Amino acid sequence: MRITTFRAMLADEFGAGHAETIAHDHVFAALGGRTVDQALEAGVPTKEIWQAVCEAFEVPPDRR
């Protein structure tokens, strides 16, 4: 998944402003204690990041 697609999915699920806050501030244990932005910079695949976000925020399976 492309980063632009990932960012669009994040914004669609949480709203643009909240998505930016999640990406910048929320630390995910499943991403090794990184934020979304840090994980992207470290080269973690976007699918893996999306799965971590969905698990942490209990996104329903049909929207994952």
Rank of each mutant, 00 (worst) to 15 (best):
H26Q: 07
G33A: 07
V59I: 14
T21V: 15
A11K: 13
H18D: 06
T21I: 09
R34Q: 05
M1S: 10
V59L: 09
W50Q: 04
R7W: 09
E48H: 15
H18A: 13
A16G: 10
I49L: 11
E20A: 11
A11I: 03
G33R: 14
E55F: 09
E55P: 00
G15M: 12
R7C: 11
A39V: 07
M1T: 06
A56V: 09
T35A: 04
L10E: 02
G43W: 03
V53D: 02
G33V: 08
A56Q: 10
E20Q: 12
F6M: 11
L10N: 02
E58Y: 11
F6E: 00
P60N: 08
T35F: 04
G15W: 09
G43I: 01
R2I: 09
G17F: 07
E20Y: 10
R63A: 08
P45V: 01
R64V: 02
G15R: 06
D12N: 09
I22R: 04
D62N: 14
R64Y: 13
A39R: 13
A19P: 05
L31Y: 01
Q51K: 14
E41A: 11
R7E: 08
V44W: 01
V44Q: 00
I3Y: 09
E41P: 01
I3L: 14
R7K: 15
V53C: 04
E13M: 06
P60A: 14
V59R: 04
A39D: 00
D62A: 14
R34W: 00
D62V: 08
C54S: 10
T21Q: 14
I49C: 00
A42F: 02
P60Y: 10
F6Y: 02
C54H: 07
M9Q: 12
E41G: 10
L40N: 00
T5F: 14
D25M: 11
P60I: 12
E41C: 06
P61A: 11
D12L: 11
H24I: 02
A42W: 03
D37I: 04
F6T: 00
F14D: 00
L10K: 09
D12S: 08
T46K: 04
E58M: 07
T35E: 01
H24N: 09
G43S: 03
F6Q: 01
I3E: 15
D62C: 10
F14Q: 01
F28D: 00
E55R: 14
R7P: 15
A23N: 04
R2F: 10
H18C: 13
V44D: 06
T4V: 07
D12R: 12
A19V: 02
E58V: 03
D37W: 09
D25G: 11
D37F: 05
D37G: 02
V53S: 04
A39G: 05
E58H: 11
P61F: 08
V59Q: 04
V44M: 02
I3D: 03
L40D: 07
E58P: 07
D25H: 07
D37M: 12
T5L: 11
E20L: 13
I22Q: 00
K47F: 15
F6K: 01
A39P: 05
G43C: 03
T4D: 06
T5A: 09
H24M: 14
P60V: 08
V27L: 07
G32Q: 01
F57R: 15
E20T: 06
A23R: 13
H18T: 14
T5C: 05
R64W: 12
T46G: 02
L31H: 04
H26R: 13
A23W: 12
L40V: 04
T46I: 12
T35R: 07
A42C: 08
A11D: 00
